[in-house]
């Protein structure tokens, strides 16, 4: 399937994948993240249950220290 990941087209060798699996696959190792799927911000408890499907638009933001 093809998804949009941070505005870049990515081909994933699966029909669907959970957010947690996507983070591992794409090596997002940063602990502090905000993830948006098709415009909706996910809660951390949803990472294991939310699946990404063909055509989905996923954005991963890093939370950065400083304030």
């Amino acid at each position: 399937m093809k998804i949009l990941l941070n505005n870049k087209e990515e081909v994933i060798e699966a029909g669907s994948i959970t957010i947690s699996e996507l983070l591992v696959l794409k090596k997002f190792t940063w602990k502090m993240l905000i993830i948006k799927v098709n415009g909706r911000v996910l809660k951390r408890s949803e990472y294991d249950t939310t699946t990404v499907k063909d055509g989905d638009d996923v954005s991963v933001f890093h939370l950065i220290t400083g304030g």
Partner: peptide, 25 residues
């Protein structure tokens, strides 16, 4: 700290979903 930023984002999303949160990052 980033972990505090994440904590407040998750709190508002989970428990105060109608509230706007303006963050610095």
């Amino acid at each position: 700290r980033a972990e505090m930023k994440q904590m407040i984002i998750e709190t508002t999303l989970n428990d105060m979903p109608d509230k706007h949160l303006v963050t610095g990052c």
